[in-house]
Design a binder for these strands. Structure first.
Length: 809
RNA sequence: GCGGACGUGGCGGAAUUGGCAGACGCGAUGGACUUAGGAUCCAUUGGGCAACCAUGCAGGUUCGAUUCCUGUCGUCCGCACCA
């Protein structure tokens, strides 16, 4: 078969018939199947695209044939740095390159033969989309979930922009690998921490990979503890956060983060110089080194003392950079005897070590960081750590010196970017009125085209006077626009809400529609977004719910991550390694269906694995084999009444077995086994068809079943075969085959016979045989007879349909 | 250090609730057809002559363990001075 022309033929037909356009009339049967949208890149679709989009499309087609009204949209995450960097290099405007890349990608995605509903397409860089991204920003602002503050932020000196915590990997920029530095800047944040608890709790009910849920749990990092107030001799108060209030009597020093404001205030004159030098030194140490656990703990005594609220003891205050200003209160109580880090610190600075927890196992190695029983803690002596944590915090609480407290590692999401190619932040700064939101009627704040975007650390928009100058919406006076753009993750945090209502000009989406279409029933994409996109999207959904726009709590009910296809050498594909497998050459040779089917067959979908050239040939052979069979069967007369002999029963069994298993496997993304079952089915049909006394109508019937089962996996090919069989309507408008339960019941079944749990032989019994018959049949077998000769059967275990096990002595 | 996985033939990978380990395919070997074969078809293919032995290793639970439990080794991924 000439796959190329077959593909084009059906793609055109499908488009003409609007086969994949979502029909809102059937919204009660909707199935929202979503693949993470793609970034428009200049290079061709790579294997990863095919693996994600092609195979999920097969899943979606399967759902369609199962009677669902499938909504499978596609769009482009079109703002972002690569286009801007390309522009800086070549002078081509980001809009020009992005739109042309989108055009090429659309063509390629269409050639894939997926049933994307292109009517629902979105491009995040278009004003009709980012208008609503800006709307989202304003809504968050209105509801107190977007705020501006000056804070030390992650700055990438190469990208010349700030980064969210999630975008910093090992102290480096996630995108370019440049070492990230800290800078104090006034930036916009989204208050994702307001939802920390719900983001954590609701994970339990999601059908998501365990690992991804674990990563989010870890990232949110909830810890139960207490805040304890220490007072200094000067009367200043500060809080420490601790999960180990039970060790409070063991505090021998207190450490503040160098950035902590009290450091400046409390440092005594004689220590000023030393402290200043220390702060300067640590700010020079780069993030990576500072974050390394292996690094020696350093600090400096600031000359002041704090009072331990529980026993009035005076302990020295240090500034130490192992204390992070951004977590907890930026201050810790130093318990050298019971904390690894405090112990090292105390050793280095020769601070006292006071043991207050006894190891119940009698150990006396320090530091002892496990729970135990309290000693040297006055009236709390003898309590277990767990009891003591409560008791001590309760006592402090009654004295207004502390309280129970839950802390999260999750920080608010920094969304400002000092870059050009993004959605402008719809805010105006007026000297008189302060920060004023752009009125909704003035949206979108259009991104100006003629902007100098050579990076110099300042927002490119800041240099565009025509953009910056604006009248204050409140007082009408001269004002300036916010020069920053939004993190592209803001654009992608709500796109799944726009797809079903993408042409709406009055609203980002009609709640009426969206509450019926969502949540997404199946979301498929790479695992690399676990703590970014997937977390942000959940947050935005919850925020919009609380504003009354949405009636659901979670955007993505069920999530699957595709694995990664490696190069033939088992390594990740990379240009430098020269092991990149390009889909194009295979598609030219075999067609897109064969390519897709090999991706289905060759790998465990969620695991991925190395590419194998020979594997794809075997699929090509398989499709040719099917084609020969279908062409032959197409001349057979339809099925009339017939006698069911052994051979017919075997074929009908194979058919029912195939339907049952392919159905189940397609539903669970077990594509590799689904194809394996199809191969077995084909073999069974061939075997029957080779008989002299065969019922041709029966062959035809099973071949039809075969084509139906094959259709989601090889859409163009199956469509062509379906028409060869004389059908006029699309195979995708057919109902998925249903299997006949009775066909799966065999007259006779084979059982294994075990003696003392070792298989000795096989017996064949009627499938409805009772235990007695199974037993007696087994005992008649010569092998069995020999094995139990002179011994006594003490127990017989019969597992229906599987085995019989004699325990003999 | 913490968290999550994973470990099965020469290879990719199967195995529903604990029930005949190795489905399906690749590769390999032998054969048929053929001027030819890198096409097609057929057969064999975990090891061992066999009893048996085999799911990283060592135990445990069980009539029975790839599957459950404990320990251990190894690989991968994520987080990491989070108090």
């Amino acid at each position: 078969m000439d796959m190329k022309s077959v593909e084009i033929k059906w793609q055109n037909k499908w488009e003409k018939d609007k086969l994949y356009t979502f029909n809102k009339k059937n919204i009660d049967k909707k199935f929202y199947c979503l693949e993470m949208f793609s970034y428009p890149s200049a290079s061709k679709l790579h294997l990863g695209h095919w693996y994600n989009y092609g195979l999920t499309d097969s899943f979606a087609r399967y759902k369609k044939m199962k009677g669902f009204e499938v909504f499978e949209p596609m769009g482009f995450d079109a703002f972002g740095l690569p286009a801007e960097n390309y522009a800086i290099k070549t002078g081509v405007h980001p809009e020009t390159s992005t739109l042309s890349n989108i055009e090429t990608m659309e063509k390629q995605l269409k050639a894939m033969g997926a049933m994307f509903d292109w009517n629902a397409e979105i491009k995040t860089c278009m004003p009709d989309y980012y208008k609503w991204t800006q709307w989202l920003f304003l809504k968050l602002y209105e509801n107190g979930l977007a705020y501006r503050k000056e804070a030390p932020v992650n700055w990438c000196p190469s990208c010349n922009t700030v980064l969210a915590n999630e975008q910093v990997v090992d102290g480096c920029c996630e995108r370019c690998g440049t070492q990230v530095i800290k800078r104090n800047l006034t930036q916009w944040f989204f208050k994702i921490t307001a939802y920390a608890d719900e983001l954590l709790e609701k994970l339990d009910e999601l059908d998501w990979p365990e690992k991804t849920k674990a990563m989010q749990r870890n990232w949110i990092g909830k810890s139960y503890g207490g805040e304890i107030t220490f007072e200094t001799e000067s009367g200043d108060k500060f809080n420490v956060f601790t999960t180990r209030a039970d060790t409070l009597f063991g505090v021998t020093f207190v450490a503040l983060a160098p950035e902590h404001p009290l450091v400046q205030k409390l440092t005594t004159n004689d220590r000023k110089e030393a402290v200043q030098k220390y702060i300067e030194d640590t700010s020079k140490t780069d993030e990576i080194e500072r974050l390394s656990t292996a690094r020696e703990k350093t600090g400096v005594f600031i000359g002041a003392y704090a009072i331990n609220p529980v026993n009035g003891k005076k302990v020295p205050i240090y500034a130490a950079d192992y204390v992070l200003y951004s977590y907890g209160t930026g201050a810790v109580m130093g318990v050298a005897a019971h904390d690894e880090r405090d112990y090292k610190f105390a050793q280095k600075y020769d601070l006292p070590i006071s043991v207050v927890i006894r190891d119940p196992n009698g150990g006396n190695k320090l530091p002892y960081t496990e729970d135990g029983y309290l000693i040297n803690s006055l009236e709390f002596d003898g309590l277990s750590s767990e009891e003591a944590r409560k008791a001590i915090l309760n006592r402090l609480n009654s004295e207004m010196k502390g309280n129970h407290k839950i802390n999260y590692r999750l920080r608010d999401w920094l969304v400002s970017r000092q870059r050009y190619w993004g959605a402008p932040i719809p805010m105006i700064h007026c000297e008189k009125c302060g920060t004023v939101p752009v009125p909704y009627k003035d949206l979108p704040v259009l991104l100006p085209k003629d902007v100098e975007f050579k990076p110099d650390g300042k927002s490119p928009l800041a240099k565009c006077e025509s953009f910056m100058n604006v009248k204050c919406p409140k007082c009408g006076g001269e004002a300036r626009r916010d020069p920053d753009t939004l993190d592209t993750f803001v654009c992608s945090s709500w796109y799944y809400l726009r797809y079903p209502d993408n042409k709406n000009e009055d609203m980002p989406f009609d709640p009426e529609v969206i509450n019926q279409m969502l949540p997404v029933d199946k979301y498929v994409g790479g695992p690399e977004h676990a703590c970014m996109h997937l977390l942000y999207a959940r947050f935005i959904t919850k925020a919009l719910r609380d504003m009354g726009y949405l009636k659901f709590d979670e955007p993505f009910k069920s999530l699957t991550h595709q694995g990664i296809i490696l190069g033939p050498d088992g390594f990740r594909m990379s240009k430098s390694r020269g092991n990149v497998v390009s889909p194009d050459t295979y598609i030219d040779t075999y067609g897109s269906d064969v390519f897709r089917m090999y991706l289905m067959f060759g790998f465990d979908y969620t695991a991925g694995g190395p590419w194998d050239d020979n594997g794809i040939k075997s699929i090509a052979k398989f499709t040719e084999k099917i084609e020969r069979l279908v062409v032959k069967a197409s001349s057979y007369k339809p099925l009339a009444d017939f006698e069911k002999g052994e051979d017919e029963k075997a074929l009908l069994f194979a058919e029912a077995y195939a339907i049952k298993n392919v159905d189940r496997d397609m539903n669970s993304f077990s594509f590799n086994t689904a194809i394996a079952r199809l191969m077995e089915f084909v073999t069974a049909i061939y075997k029957y068809d080779a008989l002299e006394n065969k019922n041709e109508g029966l062959v035809l019937k099973t071949v039809e079943t075969l084509v139906l089962l094959l259709a989601p996996c090889a859409p163009h090919f199956a469509e062509e075969l379906w028409s060869i069989l004389g059908n006029k309507k699309s195979v995708f408008l057919q109902a998925y085959p249903v299997f006949d339960e009775s066909a799966l019941v065999k007259d006779e079944i084979e059982l294994a016979v075990q003696i003392n749990s070792k298989v000795k032989c096989k017996i064949v019994v009627p499938s409805n045989a009772d235990d007695e018959l199974i037993k007696s049949t087994a005992l008649l077998n010569q092998n069995v007879e020999k094995s139990i000769e002179g011994k006594q059967i003490v127990k017989t275990i019969i597992v229906k349909g599987r085995l019989v096990n004699f325990i003999v002595k």
